[in-house]
Design a protein around this nucleic acid. Sequence first.
DNA 1: CCATAATCGAGACGGTACGTCGCGTCTTTGG
DNA 2: CCAAAGACGCGACGTACCGTCTCGATTATGG
Lengths: 211, 211, 211, 211
Amino acid sequence: MQSSTGRPPATRTGRPRSAAADTAILAATREALVELGWSGLTLGDVASRAGVAKTTLYRRWAGKNELVVDAVAELFDALELPDRGSLAADIEDVVLQLAVLLSRPEARCGLMAVVAESTLDEALRERIRTSIVQRQKRLVHTGRVRAQRRGELPPDPDPAEAARTVDLTFDMVAGAVLHRTLVSGRPADEEWVHDLTRVLLTGLTTPGPTP
Amino acid sequence: MQSSTGRPPATRTGRPRSAAADTAILAATREALVELGWSGLTLGDVASRAGVAKTTLYRRWAGKNELVVDAVAELFDALELPDRGSLAADIEDVVLQLAVLLSRPEARCGLMAVVAESTLDEALRERIRTSIVQRQKRLVHTGRVRAQRRGELPPDPDPAEAARTVDLTFDMVAGAVLHRTLVSGRPADEEWVHDLTRVLLTGLTTPGPTP
Amino acid sequence: MQSSTGRPPATRTGRPRSAAADTAILAATREALVELGWSGLTLGDVASRAGVAKTTLYRRWAGKNELVVDAVAELFDALELPDRGSLAADIEDVVLQLAVLLSRPEARCGLMAVVAESTLDEALRERIRTSIVQRQKRLVHTGRVRAQRRGELPPDPDPAEAARTVDLTFDMVAGAVLHRTLVSGRPADEEWVHDLTRVLLTGLTTPGPTP
Amino acid sequence: MQSSTGRPPATRTGRPRSAAADTAILAATREALVELGWSGLTLGDVASRAGVAKTTLYRRWAGKNELVVDAVAELFDALELPDRGSLAADIEDVVLQLAVLLSRPEARCGLMAVVAESTLDEALRERIRTSIVQRQKRLVHTGRVRAQRRGELPPDPDPAEAARTVDLTFDMVAGAVLHRTLVSGRPADEEWVHDLTRVLLTGLTTPGPTP
DNA sequence: CCATAATCGAGACGGTACGTCGCGTCTTTGG
DNA sequence: CCAAAGACGCGACGTACCGTCTCGATTATGG
C-alpha cells in the first residue's frame, strides 16, 4: 500500500486504522472513475461508495491526485509477461495486455488525469514514476533476459547501454499503445499490434551504428 | 476558429461579437494553464485575464474542455517539417519539435487533461481528433512523400496500406515522445531522439513479411 | 436593514441584490430558532428554509451572530407604548409586552445566545447595543415625558441626571423581566407584573437623598 | 471477565474513577470559556487541558451544556453576604459582588449560553434552577432575616407573601445587574449600584396598596 | 434618425463540492 | 473496570467555482 507515509512508531496506541477501508476506498475510486470520469469524481462520493466517512479518506490520502495514482497503480500491477516462446510473441502479448488495460475507462482517464496534474506538481510526478512507471519496466527487463537466453538478442554490452535500451523500448511500446488508444482514439486491434511488433522488433534487433 | 457552433443566419442584426475577444481568451487560457494547471484553471479567472465578462466566454464555448482543446490546438498548428535533406534528419527534427512543444506546461497539461476527459465524452474525443490529431498527420504525410521522392522509401503499394503506415508512424513517434516526457518524466534529449530515430527508421524501412 | 455595511457607490453595476431575500432570510432565521434553538440553528438550514442559496446568506451577513442579532432586533422593534392614562398603567403595559416577547423562543434564545457570544466579541457587543438596546430606550423616554406632562413625575433637573435615570429604569425593567422568565424560569404573570410595577413606581417617584 | 461471576456486585470492581479528574475538568472548562467563549469551547480541548481523555469526560457528563452548568455553578457558590450593619449596605455589597462575578468572562458567557440552550430543553432549565438560581436565593433570605432583626423590615405577614417578595427581590437585583453588564454592556460602577440600591430599598420598604 | 436586437461589463443568483473541524462512539493497549 | 490514545461515521462549516440570470450601457443594422 502506497498510502503509508513514514515509519510508524514501534508501539502504536489508540485504535488502529481499518485495513479493509483502504481496499474498499481504492475499489470505490476505480468504480467512480468508470462512471463519472476524473472531473466528475468526488471524494465524498468515493467515501460513500466505500461505506466510509470522508474524513477517513482524507486521513489516508492528501487528495484526489494521490488517491487516483494508487488506485490506478493497482491496475497496472496486474500486467504479466507469460513466456510465449519467442520475443515477437512476448511483445505482442504484452502490447495486447496493455491495450486491453487502456481500454478500461478507469485506467484511461485515471492515468491521463494524474499525468496532466503532474505537470505542475513535482511530488506527484515522482509518485507516478515510482508507483507505476518503474514497477512496469520489469516487463521489458524480463522479456529481454528471456530473449537473450533464447539467443534472439545479444548479451548486454554494458549496463548503462542496457538501461537506455530498456527505457527506450518501454517508452516506445507504452507510448504507441497509449497514443493509439487515447489520443488517436482508434482501437489497438490485432493487425495494428502485429504491425507495431514487426517495426519494433526489426528496429531493436538490427544492429545500429551507435558506437 | 472552431468555436462557431452552427450556421449563423446570413443577415445578422445586433451588435457583432468582438473578434479580439476570441484571441484574448485563448491566450489567457494558455497563460492560466501554465500558472495553474488544468484543475486550477477557472473560467472566471480566464475571463478576467482576458479582460472579458464570464458571459462572453460562455457565449462562445460550452465549457472548460472545449475551450482548452481550441487553445491547445493552436499550439500544435505551429509544428512544421522543414526539409533537412534526409528522412533521418527530418524525423529527428520533428521529434525534437514535438519534444519542445510538450515541454511547455500549457501543452502538456492541456492535452493530457482533455484526453482524460474525452474517455467518457465521445463528442470531445471527436473534437480532439479533428482539431489536433488529424491536422498533424500532415507532417508524417509530407515526410513520406519527400522520402519517396528521394528514393529513401518505396512508392506506396496501395492507399489503404499507406494510410495504415502513416497512422502507425504517427502513433509511434508522437506516443514515444509523449510517454518519455510526460509519463516517464525524463527529457527527450538529443541522444534519446537519436536512438529513437534509428529504431524507427530501421523498423520502417526494412521490408517486413506482411504480404 | 442593518445588513448594509457602508455607502454603496452611487452608480451600481451588475445585478442588484434581491430585496425579498433579506426578508425571507430573517423570517427563516426566527423560524429555525423556534424549532432548533441557537446551537441547532444551521446557516444551511436557514438558507433552504428561505429558498435561498447559502452563498447569498454569506454575502449579506458575516455569520450566525450577526444574522441572529438582526433577526431578533426586528422582534423588539414591534414593542410599543400606548397611552394607558397613568404612569403605573403604562409601565404595566410595557412590562407585559416585554414578558410576552420573551416568552417567544426565538426572542429568548436568540437574545441570550448573542449576548453570550458578545462576551468575547466587542464588535458584536456594539452591534447589539445599537440594534437592540438603544432603540428600545425610546419606550422609557416616551413614558417619562408623558408622566411629566401628567404631573406624575417632576421635570428633569438636568440632562445628565435624566439620562442616568432612563438607563437605570431600563436596566431594572428589562432585567427583571428577563431574569424572571429566562433565568428563574417562572412566568411573568399579572400578579408579578403588578408587584414589580409597584416597587418600581415607588422607588422611582420617591425623592431620594441624591442631591 | 467478571461476567462469568454473574451479577455486578454492589461494590464496584475494577479501577475506581479518578477524583482529581472532576476538579481538573471543571477548572479546564472555565479556563477554556475565558479564552474561547461558548461556541469556541470544545470538549476535546477541555479534555486535553485537563490532561484527560475525551472518554473520561463523556463518562461523567452528558455534553457541553451539563458540563458548563456545573462549572458555572461553582462560581456562584462563592457569593457571600457579610453583615455590613444595614440593609442598604448589605444590598450594595451583594450587588457589587454579583457585578464583579458577571464581569468574569467564564461566568458571563457560560451562564448566558446555558440559559439560551435551556429555552428548548426543560431538563437543562431545571438543572440551572436547582444548581444556580435556588442556591443563591439564600442571599436574599439571609439579608431579609437580618433586616427584620434590625427592625428595618417588618416581620413576614405570611409565608407565601414572603416567598413572593424574595423571588421578586432576587429577580430585580440579579436581573438589573445582569442586564446592565451584559445586555446594555455598561459597567455596574459604584454610582450605579448606589442608585439601584436606593430605588430598590425605597420600593421594597414603602408599604404598598397590596392587600 | 430612430427602433430593434444582439453584444458587452458587471455581479448576484441557486447549486455543488471542497477540505476542515468538532461531535460522540468505538476499539485498541496498558494499568 | 478505568484510562489514554486515536480512528471512526457523521454532519456543519465557510469558501470557491459553476453556469445562469439580470442589470445598464454599447454598437451594429434596417425601417
